[in-house]
Design a protein around this nucleic acid. Sequence first.
DNA 1: AAGACGAAAGTGGTTGA
DNA 2: TCAACAACTTTCGTCTT
Length: 307
Amino acid sequence: MSFVKKCPECGSSNILFNSEKGEVICKACGLVVEEKMIDFGQEWREFDHDQAAKRRRTGAPLSYTKFDKGLGTDVGQKGDIYKLGSKGKNKFFRLRKWQYRISTAIERNLKLALAELKRVASYLKLPKSVEEESARIYTMAVQRGLVRGRSMESVVAGALYAACRRHEVPRTLDELSEASGIDKKEIGRTYRFVTRELGIRILPSNPVDYIPRFASALKISAETQSKAVEILELAQGSELTSGRGPTGIAAASLYVAALTNNEKRTQREVADIAGVTEVTIRNRYKELIKKLNLKEVLKKVKKEEVK
DNA sequence: AAGACGAAAGTGGTTGA
DNA sequence: TCAACAACTTTCGTCTT
């Protein structure tokens, strides 16, 4: 269950896993690396198929998108209250109160945060796997106290962004910003902070991943789209992509592809969708036709022949 | 008149001393 | 901690279709 090999605090690899308490502790500095873990081991034995069927049991899948990983039970909020007498009602409310008190600060935080996370994720139509991943990241961040001093929402957005990147379904910071209502810079900052602190390795995002989304937003045909990918790969071959913003490159190759396939879109349109400025597209575009001159030159020649 | 192009100045983040 | 730096943006004026 535990992926932790080294203590994030002191770097010591002297990590102790206490399965009874469900905790991972660093022996060198005493930091509790992870807690409230779940013991996945079987506590029964099975000798044949019948016994296995009887003794095995399972419930809803564990999910990080539930604040208690789907294991908790709430005292209900509505429903059968009317069946209870006044005594029963009092008891009922007392129980609710207790549950509320028992919840630690972390759990309450998680509950709120994961609600927010779900909202943003569904707004962006992110796949379930990304939602899970970001919930996991957020949970780890809370356990390490990384949220302190930062707004909950911004950490949620940062976790989502990181999860998107890891699953290669990149969303731009602008989109995240629009969905969560957090400033773009703030998201970027917390994203970097959280990934650094948690030691999450993110590969630089690949411009190709952006193409399909931009293309469909611009209603560009499939042929042009694959043309764009082609161009993009050529560009990557000639070192045009390193150090540049991936969205700019994706946008520019899409623009060029649309141009050569007579599906012209204005720079403005492409720029808006990709979340970059026309200028950036122009710069990338210039580099593209310079390095891969053949295509564009040919196109121009053809046009002049028509004239 | 809209879109494409380019120059210049400004912004936020990274890097190296 | 600070200055240099690269990438990108904003703004604005000019050129092309």
